[in-house]
Amino acid sequence: MDEMTKVRELRSEAPTPDRARLAQGRMRLVDAAEGGGSAWRMARLRRDWRLAAAGAALAVAASAVIAVNVADSSGGSDPGPRPAASQTARPGTAQEFLEAAARAAESVKGAEPREDQWYYTKHIGASVERDTGELGKSTTDEDWFTAGSQKGEESDWTRYYALLKGLPDDPEGIVKAYQKAYPNQFDMLDPKKPADVFYIAQALARSPITPLEGEGQAKLYRALAKLPGIGLVDRPVTDAAGRETVGITLKPGPDDRYRNEMLMLPDTYQVVGSRMVVARDFTDNNEETAFFPGTWKAGDVMTTSADLVLTFVDEKNARP
């Protein structure tokens, strides 16, 4: 063996990053290329359901190690706490539903994961395909994130957990708190814009860690309830996993082409998915600038994603 072979072997097991891992860097580039438009950047993130699903987890674990498509293995621990089932029928307004969800959440205090654990997520979803203009076949993605710290640094989940405990009550303050804690990741959000509050609150309410800190989860729900234009989707929404859910959405502005829906189970109030839906009829055939080129009708679903599993496991690549 010559010395070049030895050099080539050193750290040769370094992983090639997957798309979710590279998403933040791509967004920074696209943002620079397009002049920093936050709406554009967020919409780009949502265009692919996998990035939308990964977004929440990425947001709370900037240096998380993500692995996909690994060999089968077994093991794992309990998914953790879930709010008790609701005794009431579906409330009539978004405010009532979110308040009921907040009350169910704030009583929850789960066990914190150990430093050496991983959190495992499995999502299912579909996005509109350019060729057909219709939702593609549903696919699943699996990720493993580090729960513990890396090389003695403060762990991301510990930092996030502390942030949840100290969340303020007002929507604007919640966005500012996240911006302060993660200065490079939420700088594109405007705390005064309801759509930005909705985006971050629903994404974080869906993260695997948030339900462990019930009071923080409750504050997210109550912040959503305070947003002007918050409402329930007027009929049950079937999520990407086939479950009947309650959709929470913001009334779109006159210029908005799309609206986003946060999907919650009606009995446990657990946030289990999201959809991006066309808000009004429009046509845009500019294939280089439109998120989804084509002619669209209000109600068309552009992306849908649902959580199948969110849980802590003891080993990387382990499944519960």
Binding site: P15, P17, Q150
Partner: peptide
Amino acid sequence: PELFALLYDRYAPDIHRYAARRLGDGAAD
């Protein structure tokens, strides 16, 4: 300018892996 993202899609995985081998996975991002 937005077309430049095509280069990211082509080469970011290789650049990231190279940077990870030299400085670590976190710094590579």
